[in-house]
């Protein structure tokens, strides 16, 4: 399991190659790459703030839940902090499992958590000024889906 915060842009393709290499029992790897949007010019940069130490530990707790719940072989989460330009990747999640359903679902689960519960604070800077972004109702509803599935 790998959980990393980085101030540097990253290459999702290279991360996937590294994550996949050498696996002989993993039948499925699913990934998600989140990319900063320009919002038709209204966002010049995104600023992502974390609480070093706490943020990695909290993500680690949820990653361990995901590993156990979906029976993952492995997972990787890389999340940017600092200044992010439109078009640059913000987050990369990779999940490895024996079969595709677990890999897809774990990736979806981890992203729903990261959007609305992980200790990050996100500010949009644009020509009209700056504003802090809070999770949307849709983000909260997405995460709540996993809490309702108690019979898993």
């Amino acid at each position: 399991m790998s959980i990393t915060l980085t101030e540097e842009p990253f290459d999702a393709g290279a991360l996937l190659s590294d994550f996949t290499r050498g696996r002989t029992e993993t039948g499925a790897v699913a990934t998600f790459t989140g990319i900063a949007r320009a919002e038709q010019g209204s966002t010049a940069t995104l600023e992502l703030e974390a609480y070093p130490g706490f943020t990695e530990a909290e993500i680690g707790r949820i990653a361990e839940q995901a590993r156990a719940r979906f029976g993952l072989d492995d997972l990787l989460i890389l999340h940017r902090v600092g200044e992010i330009a439109p078009g640059e990747p913000i987050v990369f999640v990779a999940t490895a499992a024996g079969h595709r359903r677990a890999a897809f679902e774990a990736c979806d689960f981890l992203m729903d958590y990261l959007k609305s519960k992980a200790p990050f604070w996100k500010k949009e800077h644009g020509p009209g000024g700056a504003r802090w972004i809070e999770p949307t109702d849709a983000d909260h509803a997405d995460r709540a889906r996993w809490e309702q599935e108690t019979d898993r």
């Binding site: 999340h79 992203m111 990261l114 609305s116 992980a118 200790p119 990050f120 972004i133 809070e134 999770p135």
Partner: peptide
């Protein structure tokens, strides 16, 4: 002591 307002990543 850290005060943590509503969080949003990704």
């Amino acid at each position: 002591v850290a005060f943590l307002p509503p969080m949003s990543g990704g």
